[in-house]
Nucleic acid binder design. Structure first.
Lengths: 209, 209
DNA sequence: GTGAAATTTTGAACGATGTTCATGACCGAG
DNA sequence: CTCGGTCATGAACATCGTTCAAAATTTCAC
């Protein structure tokens, strides 16, 4: 016997999956409450029993995307560690390239992570913020190997900066949809950026204080 | 005597300025056709005689923002050049910091430059693309001084990468509105990033090929 | 098992919003 | 002055997300 709560949970899952498919296919702007209701076979108003509003739905899709991204970065980091345990810079490059690959392969879902703005006044829930912070741990490990003498706060700051910089290259690189940036070229830009920063770190450690 | 066309041009200017003020105050989401019509004193439908649609209006506001940004970067570059003509890296840092300052001082207008997505299928007009490319010239000059031996294509690629990287740090740094990143900290991250890349370039020119 | 109470589902209705279009005012040339 | 075309007008339309009173369903005590 299926209790009401269990069925609602199942339907909520269906809703989130339908929303994920829709965003992946048509982008965030293509997400319509009425279409979702029809797709999961419920009334329009029922959606608001499964989810507070569309914002929460988008946030939950973002949570799934973030989990997949986290997994991709973890695999890349692990692979690079196995291939060259000493090469911390290479591991950073591998993570950055994995980030780029994920963005390229999931363009609309990835975009949604940043495109989505909360309605005025509403705050991002704590669990969403915590998830985003989790991503940094992949960067922090190689960074600690690269800068054993720097303090943790300095490393955190640098990790954040490095992530943001790579993100910027990917974001602007994938912007112009028509003249799609060739994968090779974008990946080369990213690798160059990360290696330049690492070379800079090796050349002049006083830049990190 | 004011011909009809002249009055329409004047009203179009009013419309763009009103839209600019609105976006600066309330953000892109706060831009409503009906409010604009009331503000410039015309009927709702008249807006569509001044502008094809809201997309074009936002693009025109973006054009003004881009012009002011271009001016700010030019001033910063010029100032740094006068202060230390030899220090190309310092000029890059000055430009990056000016970019950060502009974004911080014009958060909603700056955001609109990137937030805005064309409706499906519509393409960004050529004049808008050309304007964006203009920005790069500020970066290219110091880069040429820094890498006299590199080819122009390599320099262009690196300039684009550097711009994107700094943009990423600013974009993510200004993201969380509540826990506003202190100006000092953000500027320090940016300067660190640019100096690290410059140090990397000096240490290992083979990274740019 | 039954009936009442509580809960959930329903979809019409509401309030916004961008855009269009018949209508009527207005302008300018002859 | 007049008339033909141009332009302004705002009601109407198509979509949205969201709400809510009513209907349907489930729950539960007896």
């Amino acid at each position: 016997m299926t209790t009401t709560a269990a069925r609602r949970d199942r339907q909520r899952e269906q809703l989130i999956e339908a929303a994920e498919r829709t965003i992946a296919e048509k982008g965030l702007a293509g997400l319509k409450a009425r279409e979702l209701a029809q797709e999961i076979g419920c009334a329009l108003g029922a959606i608001y029993n499964l989810v507070r509003d569309m914002d929460e739905l988008v946030l939950r899709v973002g949570s799934r995307t973030l989990a997949r991204l986290d997994e991709a970065l973890g695999h890349a980091s692990q692979g690079a560690l196995a291939a060259a345990p000493e090469d911390a810079a290479g591991r950073l490059v591998a993570i950055a390239l994995a980030y780029s690959a994920f963005a390229r392969e999931n363009p609309r879902l990835w975009r949604t992570l940043f495109e989505h703005r909360m309605v005025e006044g509403a705050e991002v829930p704590d669990w969403a913020v915590a998830e985003q912070m989790q991503l940094f741990r992949h960067i922090m490990a190689p960074l600690a190997a690269l800068l054993p003498e720097a303090g943790e706060p300095q490393r955190l700051l640098l990790g954040r900066t490095l992530f943001s910089a790579v993100h910027g290259v990917v974001a602007i690189g994938l912007e112009e949809k028509l003249v799609a940036v060739p994968r090779r070229e974008l990946d080369h830009q990213i690798e160059t950026l990360v290696r330049l920063v690492c070379a800079g770190l090796a050349a002049d450690t006083t830049l990190i204080r």
